[in-house]
């Protein structure tokens, strides 16, 4: 029996019918048309479906949407639309930290949460934070480079506040 719940997605309050067995990922993709978080393993093993919930990067394939009532959820669509995060997107493009691109939203979302938490991450921090994101094309070395540059740029732009 679907129940109507309220979510806050990328800063906008949304109501939706949440069938008990529906994952957050499926709800984003099929009910809200947010196809950025990718469907890959569907078992918590690849990170492609990463979204940020109450500030933490989590796996939307392994969360029931009916348990997200009242949570603030950020998806790649929100990050991409926010000028504050343009340096991150730009750095990813500049360093070509993607090949087929399927895993990229997951990486980027995880990276965003990392910079949120530690605006000056070390390379080791980047590696650790992204340890659960899998890229079949093997783009791994480029992510840290992109993130470090993005962080630098964002900091020099005055914390990126006025982006």
């Amino acid at each position: 029996m679907p129940e109507t719940i309220e979510l806050n997605i990328n800063g906008i309050a949304k109501q939706l019918d949440a069938a008990p067995n529906r994952t957050l990922h499926d709800a984003l993709q099929y009910q809200m048309g947010l196809t950025g978080a990718k469907h890959m393993c569907d078992r918590g093993a690849c990170g492609s479906c990463t979204v940020i919930m109450d500030g933490r990067p989590v796996l939307s394939c392994s969360i029931l949407v009916c348990e997200c009532e009242g949570k603030a959820i950020e998806t790649i669509e929100g990050i991409a639309a926010d000028p504050k995060w343009k340096p991150l997107v730009d750095a990813y493009c500049k360093w070509d930290a993607m090949q087929c691109g399927y895993c990229t939203p997951g990486f980027l979302t995880t990276a965003k949460a990392l910079i949120d938490r530690s605006p000056n991450p070390s390379e080791q921090d980047c590696r650790e934070a992204l340890a659960g994101n899998i890229c079949m094309c093997g783009t791994y070395p480029r992510h840290a480079t992109a993130i470090l540059e993005a962080a630098r740029n964002m900091n020099s732009e005055g914390g990126g506040l006025n982006g």
Binding site: G44, R56, L59, E128, A131, G132
Partner: peptide, 9 residues
């Protein structure tokens, strides 16, 4: 255990 994002859950 597992990955950072799993550990968040």
């Amino acid at each position: 255990v597992a990955t950072p994002n799993i550990r968040n859950m």
